[in-house]
Design a protein around this nucleic acid. Structure first.
Lengths: 235, 235
DNA sequence: CATATAAGGTTATCAGACAACCTTACAATG
DNA sequence: CATTGTAAGGTTGTCTGATAACCTTATATG
């Protein structure tokens, strides 16, 4: 039997921060507007100033407000706020597949862009990642790290920071989920196939052929999906 | 002349949190490990417990640690941490284009998935967004909101939460950047073209034709890029 | 007019205390 | 012996009040 943790009333500062955050994101407080003072909020909400301070600290951390000592706290401009996606464990098969599905078009596009834009340094990093995967023995934790490094290297070769960061995040999550779920179940053979596909992709990038690079990445990811027993439509 | 703000030593709690965050991300502290107590850290760092608490609150907010009252603070498992990308304003043309370039494959894929998976409710939301754009007068702030709503509705129709959230974030940033940069410069004609393209996309989705939906989204985004004077390779 | 200076308000930090909660050890109970 | 109750100690959560650092504005001051 598993009950999970019951939170009696879920962290006071977080609730207050959530309330204010909703006020901001739903437009009841507009960028530039000044929040009430900490003293006022504490009185108004019936909590101590510590709690209010922690709530505001959270908002600042989420990029929703800026504080200036001696002046006050102000709602930030929307475009300066970080992109942030909560991560729910990928425990269930559904969300794992969904994230994988998101990854596919990103990586395909990245492969094409990498073929067009890679520098000599980029290619060298790709080759290094490739070597460290071939060198290793099996599909161990090390192998997963090497695989991740390869995909990161390709993403970096796009010259587009966003691809780099997004793919880095997503691929890492997927790797971790695989690691946890089925590291033991996979076989050496898979590594061989993976390496083959990596090499094909690497060569397409090296010859600056975006069409072939996209195709190679597509084949690779579809192959990976199949090996993971995922069915992806639309391809 | 613009100096920007000089912070004598940039927010004590943030520096402490940054130090601990580095310890975690660079592997000096491993998942599951317990942090020193707040009292200890305060003594060790020569600051008050308030500062330490705020630092730990920030780490908790970033998903790097979990705190349990009466027990302590612990480094979280890596896969539970949120995806987070700092946003640097899209001020320069380069990063604006880069983000747009990221958006393209995501939205194309989303269109295809929407064609396959949309429900009646999804389609209704798409139509509503479409109507509110046609109804409005010009390419005003309202028009931008309606455009954003349309793209969100399509992303939601994929049935894949990740597409929804990612595209929502990215499209919003791009909208905001456009709003700031060139709202004044765009003309009514553009709205007409945009609506035409939206309708074509909507019909392709409604007829559950992923190939046509992808093509329609591709045309739409490439058209938008052209109107924004962006050149995107690889298509 | 330009520059100091003073005053008041606000956030940042400090200090100490108590409350709420968890873990552990140990006694009590059956 | 196994289970339950109880007490103790440790740790985070919250409260209170005070001081420091900082900003803005108004008011002298030359």
């Amino acid at each position: 039997m598993e009950f999970g943790h019951i939170r009696r009333s879920e962290h006071l500062p977080a609730r207050i921060a959530g309330q204010i955050a909703r006020d901001i994101t739903e437009g009841r407080m507009r960028p530039g507007e000044k929040l009430p003072t900490e003293h006022f909020l504490a009185k108004a909400l019936g909590v101590s100033r510590s709690v209010v301070r922690e709530a505001i600290a959270q908002l600042r951390n989420e990029g929703l407000v800026e504080t200036r000592q001696g002046v006050g706290a102000f709602v930030t401009e929307a475009h300066a706020r970080p992109i942030r996606i909560e991560q729910d464990d990928l425990a269930d098969r559904q969300s794992f597949r969904d994230l994988f599905q998101l990854r596919v078009p990103l990586e395909i596009e990245a492969a094409g862009l990498a073929a067009l834009h890679h520098t000599a340094d980029d290619l060298q990093r790709i080759d290094e990642a490739l070597a460290s995967m071939s060198g290793g023995e099996k599909w161990t934790a090390e192998g997963i790290v090497a695989d991740l490094a390869f995909h990161r290297a390709v993403a970096a070769a796009t010259g587009n920071e966003y691809f780099s960061v997004f793919i880095g995040f997503i691929a890492e999550r997927i790797s971790l989920a695989i690691d946890a779920a089925r590291a033991a179940a996979v076989l050496e053979e898979i590594v061989e196939v993976t390496i083959e596909e990596h090499v094909a992709l690497r060569d397409a990038i090296a010859s600056r052929d975006p069409k072939r690079a996209r195709e190679a990445m597509k084949m690779h990811l579809l192959g990976a999906a199949k090996r993971l027993d995922l069915t992806l439509e639309s391809y």
